[in-house]
């Protein structure tokens, strides 16, 4: 029996203990042996062993916390580092089903995945904040008098999960309907840049070189498109049904 096989036979407590000591050596930049922590990951993901998972959390939560605080987005997100650290562990847990564990041949690849998940939860949060800001803007009008807004039904920041899913489906349907009303590649580019990417006309012009005559052509294309959308009976019916 090879020594690698024997690591697989160790009790969870022994593994946890040795993983801890090898991690200490790793953080002290000393020679270390990654097999024990890797075996813990394997038991956590392949055997859904909650104690192994708990041990890994104990070993790595400070490391993840340090990653969060070093991320370029962190200062602007306005949320505690602990929040992102816990979301990162949840994302890792959800992201590696047992059948996919073989894609991670060593500890380094698993820690790299943990890093990626840390980044992902922070980017998700940044996206959510940006969209929330856009929703907030829809509630503001220059003179305080609300205009007629056919999409108001889609604007809500705090829906329960089941409504959130329905809203997402409705938004995807809305995007399909709008795309169907586009009559040219230029209109495709304008509405994608404006509504999906929330870019400024100058940025859209630069993103699609040669597509628009000038920056004003971007706004003109979008305005013409919207005017046609408002006149479209089928689209109005869709919005009324929504």
């Amino acid at each position: 029996m090879s020594t690698h096989d024997e690591v697989g036979l160790l009790s969870l407590q022994s593994l946890c203990d040795r993983c801890h000591r090898e991690s200490e050596r790793f953080f002290a930049q000393k020679e270390h042996d990654p097999r024990f922590c890797y075996e813990l990951f394997r038991r956590a993901f392949v055997h859904s062993n909650e104690l192994a998972w708990h041990c890994l959390y104990e070993r790595y939560h400070k490391l993840v916390l340090s990653w969060v605080m070093r991320h370029a987005l962190y200062p602007g997100l306005g949320e505690e580092a602990d929040y992102f650290m816990n979301r990162a562990f949840e994302k890792v847990w959800q992201g590696i089903p047992a059948e996919n564990f073989a894609k991670f041949p060593d500890l380094k690849s698993l820690l790299r995945y943990l890093q990626m998940c840390t980044h992902a939860v922070m980017v998700d949060f940044a996206r959510w904040k940006e969209q929330a800001h856009l929703w907030d803007r829809t509630a503001e009008t220059e003179d305080g008098v609300a205009e007629y807004d056919p999409f108001a039904a889609l604007a809500s920041n705090s829906l329960p999960p089941e409504r959130e899913l329905a809203r997402r489906e409705m938004q995807e349907l809305l995007w399909q309907k709008l795309q169907a009303l586009s009559q040219s590649a230029k209109e495709d580019a304008a509405i994608f840049g404006y509504f999906v990417l929330n870019l400024k006309p100058r940025e859209i012009h630069d993103l699609y070189p040669g597509q628009f005559e000038d920056v004003r052509d971007v706004s003109r294309t979008k305005d013409n498109f919207l005017a046609r959308v408002r006149r479209n009976d089928e689209f109005r019916q869709f919005v009324d049904d929504a």
């Binding site: 992902a120 829809t138 807004d149 938004q171 709008l178 509504f195």
Partner: peptide, 24 residues
Amino acid sequence: MAQMEDSLKAALYRITCPDSATLG
């Protein structure tokens, strides 16, 4: 028109983007 535009931006923001974990 401006409010309709803002609503469309809010409703469609990043609608075609893969989630961040998929990108990762």
